[in-house]
Amino acid sequence: MLIELESVTKIYNQGRANEVKALDRVDLTIRENTMVCLKGASGSGKSTLLSIIGCVFPPTDGRAAIAGKQLSRMPDRFLTIHRRQTIGFIFQQFNILPNLTVLDNITLPLLPLGISPKERRLRAMPLMEKLAITHRENFLAGQISGGELQRVAIARALINNQPIILADEPTAHLDTRLSQQFMATMADLKAGGKTIVIASHDPLITDDSRIDQVIGVKDGRVNVP
């Protein structure tokens, strides 16, 4: 299994007055080269679940193994390195830096790897061609359309050739056409061998036939069909 969670609990602000239990003894396994949707209402815990799968933070309790590595008690530095090698993120609002060019945004994850500007561009070009944004290479991200921004975010998630792509409410700010375009791109990526986990409550995604598995998340617990 590529992603294995066993009795995972996540408590924010543990021991304080504002303590919140976001995940409660979650068991979950996701196979390689599948497209999974985490479905749930706002505040259900699906973003927290995505963050643990994405190695953003370790669980408070339980066992989480992502791409063969145990996250529990892993120091922040190693979590970062593992995340860099394994996970590509697509955020709800894309989180693209508007004052950087499209190329700079896409290649941002490669900077701390000590890759030269020339090599970074060489890696980005095929992705930009595939996602049809080559003509926007030197545009500032703040100057391009929402659909193009989405494709920049996807390219950035793929630039380091990570095996897992995580997307948090990726269609929340997109119209139907762009949402369908997004799903088509994800299906292509899956066909290319990637494992995709999407957190969403958008029916366009949850009801898409290309989704292999829909996992319900409610009140910090999961319902695996």
């Binding site: 530095r77 970062t80 390195i81 995340r83 860099r84 993120f89 994850p109 900077l111 701390p112 380091n160």
Partner: peptide, 11 residues
């Protein structure tokens, strides 16, 4: 953003 996409705190 930099942290999530793999930049370390020292970077």
């Amino acid at each position: 953003i930099l942290k999530v996409i793999g930049w370390e705190t020292t970077d």
